[in-house]
């Protein structure tokens, strides 16, 4: 079991090409923890904005009557990947991990796999 800060640190250190990571509550849009990012990339702003992405997808699924759960959402930019992983644990209802990857340096399949493991370690 890890605390939030070590989990975020681990995500940034162990995932190839990761430049920022945030743990976000998607009802309020608050980042409960962030790590990485840069002057030109404010992770708390990204976190708040991406709650709308998650909410829109969830609403669409409700409209369609889909029963499945979102595992992750991938957004590809020309030079970055943004990976959103919803936390499925018992108490973690309503949180997601947000990972920013440099497209040139990262392995998407590997990153997804590692993020899943980190989510399981977080055990919230």
């Amino acid at each position: 079991m890890a605390n939030t800060e070590t989990s975020l640190k681990e995500a940034l250190a162990s995932i190839e090409g990761a430049t920022g990571v945030a743990l976000v509550d998607y009802t309020s849009g608050m980042a409960l923890g962030t790590m990485g990012g840069s002057k030109g990339f404010d992770l708390s702003v990204a976190a708040a904005g991406n709650t709308d992405v998650v909410r829109a997808k969830m609403r669409t699924m409700e409209h369609l009557g889909l029963k499945g759960q979102i595992e992750d959402i991938l957004i590809t930019l020309s030079d970055q990947y943004h990976l959103i992983r919803l936390i499925s644990g018992r108490g973690g209802n309503g949180l997601f991990l947000y990972l920013v990857l440099d497209a040139k340096r990262s392995n998407l399949a590997m990153a997804r796999h590692q993020l899943k493991r980190i989510e399981e370690d977080l055990e919230v």
């Binding site: 079991m1 605390n3 989990s7 509550d25 409960l32 949180l95 055990e123 919230v124």
Partner: peptide, 12 residues
């Protein structure tokens, strides 16, 4: 209780 769960609930 796990440390992570406490931290998150506490912050919330």
């Amino acid at each position: 209780l796990t440390r992570g769960a406490l931290e998150l609930c506490h912050l919330e």
